[in-house]
Amino acid sequence: MIPVAFDYLAPSTVDEAVRALVDAGEDAKVLAGGQSLLPVLRMRLAAPSMVVDLSRVGELRGVREEGDELVIGAMTSHHDVLRDQLVRTHALLLAEATTTVADPQVRHRGTLGGALAHADPAGDLPAPVLALGGDVVLAGPTGRRTVPVERFFVDYFTTELAQDELLVEIRLPKRTGWGARYEKFSRVAQAWSTVAVAATVLVRDGRFVEAKVALTNMGAVPVRAYAVEEALVGGSADADAIHAAARHAAEGTNPTSDASADAEYRQHLARVLTARALTAAAAV
């Protein structure tokens, strides 16, 4: 199908983009990689009067280090995240998760910022970013604000972003030397996660010094599995400890039932996938 007609602007700076959003008002839509938005427009599930395309805003692209943080521009494509050596070194979990997103063509266009702003509960990048911790930086007409990742995801397809705000960058604390695994379950190739588990751990002398675990598609927003983390930290990094901890994975979750899985099965998957993810992340 063909999208409804809209006006189009392709600004070259963040300031221009924000101004375009303010001027356009309620009916404006930000276009990043377009890999979620264009299908939505084609199916006429949305009909914005103005599309503000960020693909020419160079300052939003790329990965850099700032002290203890890794800073990823919102318009960095999935493909570029996968190729980036800094990401591999300091945020391996994000690279692991990004390999499971969609297919090569979609990864060439789709962006990290777009995947977070879209906030699909089955999307694969919110959970790893939540597990890694850190902040997202939003730019609006009154300047920039920094929002902790835990507060960014509000509900199904809903984030902290106001209508006239842009997601500009993702700031992750470096997790250098941490093991990581994104364990994704779906029945067919090219499918979204039925459930997935993002786990990253720091193991020293056979013990879990730190452990961060977050779940995809176990609720309206990505969920941190705090009970699993608490059960692990300080304990030995072995199969028994991992399986004992993984039993807590579904605690406090409220997944939906749909055509691909009912809620109870999703909770079962969360426990099984958590054990697998931790086993791989800790190289047990």
């Binding site: 189009y8 392709a10 276009l31 377009g34 890999q35 264009l38 299908p39 084609r42 395309d53 693909s55 493909h79 090569p104 063509q105 979609v106 060439h108 266009r109």
Partner: peptide, 16 residues
């Protein structure tokens, strides 16, 4: 291919 990388041309605007 758009600038040498494969893309789905149904998911890119001509203006892009």
């Amino acid at each position: 291919h758009l600038d040498g990388r494969s893309v789905k041309s149904c998911s890119v605007l001509a203006v892009q």
